[in-house]
């Protein structure tokens, strides 16, 4: 129904970033309106940082009407813990930190137990415990569809069974801007407001908005050892050095952040958000390259998801 005076009307040309922001806000509001106990999973990385910023925008002048949940592994970089506490304070939001007591009791670590067990216990089991304990029926996550092949078909609102499993056949078609977050008994929903964002979009947005991120994303001289072709940072004294390994100081940064023993650094001089954007634009490798868990085999992320990994 174009109106005759349409050409006289004021308009504002919206860019890709404007549209992504508006879409993420719309998704967040739908999720909150359609759930009873929402929570935002907060993993401290750049995607979580964008997500938290968008939440503040979506509900302004109210504070975001849900708490933040950090499922901790005890193995994050020290800089991440400091950043996490400051970010929650700044947003005026409650921060729930969950540490799997079973992981603590068994002293799970990536060196003796391997990355697969480490991830299962701390992240997959820990997440399920926290969601069940607080009876959250909807959890926001910062996953993007462009991150990995198996995520290309993930819904914006992803339904999980009572055991938090993901069944491709239970997923609902999503048309127009209509999202259905209703659930049956025991089911819960994961909502991904950044579904349509790419890594570059996240950096461009963080730069535009002037949102600070964990300094580890920027290049600085850091103590690292080279291990299996990856640069592992010696963030604390818990990292066992293998024979012949000698920490050396190199100028590195991280493209993704996770548990420090499992996260590879890249050599880089990108010291500002702008530098990072340029580097991302010219990069020939994907950000997941630094993540050890993805490279086990090509279908590994899908299997983790079916077990309830985010």
């Amino acid at each position: 129904m174009p109106r005759a005076d349409a050409h006289l009307r004021p308009s504002r040309r919206l860019t890709n970033l404007d549209l992504l922001e508006a879409e993420a806000i719309q998704i967040m509001r739908e999720a909150v309106a359609q759930s009873e106990r929402p929570v935002m999973l907060y993993s401290i990385g750049k995607d979580s940082t964008a997500l938290l910023h968008l939440a503040r925008k979506a509900f302004h002048p109210s504070p975001p009407p849900f708490p933040l949940l950090h499922v901790d592994t005890t193995w994050k970089f020290r800089d991440m813990y400091a950043f996490r506490d400051a970010a929650a304070r700044e947003a005026g939001m409650e921060l729930i930190v969950h540490v799997n007591p079973d992981g603590v009791a068994r002293g799970i670590n990536p060196f003796e137990h391997g990355s697969a067990v480490h991830t299962d216990v701390w992240k997959t089991d820990g997440l399920k415990q926290a969601l069940d304990a607080h009876r959250f029926d909807l959890a926001f996550g910062g996953a993007r569809r462009d991150e990995e092949r198996s995520r290309a078909k993930e819904r914006v609102f992803s339904v999980r069974s009572a055991g938090h499993g993901w069944d491709p056949r239970r997923q609902r078609p999503e048309l127009w801007r209509l999202y259905d977050a209703s659930t049956g008994p025991g089911e819960s929903v994961r909502a991904f407001p950044l579904s349509n964002w790419t890594e570059l979009d996240v950096w461009l947005y963080l730069h535009r908005e002037g949102v600070p991120v964990v300094p580890l994303y920027f290049a600085a001289p850091r103590p690292v050892v080279e291990r299996d072709g990856a640069l592992v940072m010696v963030d604390d004294e818990r990292l066992p050095l293998l024979p012949g390994e000698e920490p050396e100081t190199r100028t590195v940064r991280f493209r993704t952040l996770g548990c420090y023993p499992l996260t590879g650094a890249v050599e880089s001089t990108a010291a500002t958000t702008l530098d990072v954007v340029e580097e991302t634009l010219t990069s020939r490798t994907s950000e997941r390259q630094g993540r050890v868990i993805d490279r086990d085999s090509s279908g590994s992320m899908e299997r983790k998801k079916q077990q309830g990994y985010f």
């Binding site: 198996s150 995520r151 290309a152 078909k153 579904s195 349509n196």
Partner: peptide, 18 residues
């Protein structure tokens, strides 16, 4: 995207690419 359908050689859903 999904291992199951890669093996079956068919795609059974909507996938989004960027």
């Amino acid at each position: 995207g999904l291992a199951a359908e890669r093996e079956q050689g068919i795609t059974i859903d909507v996938a989004y690419r960027y």
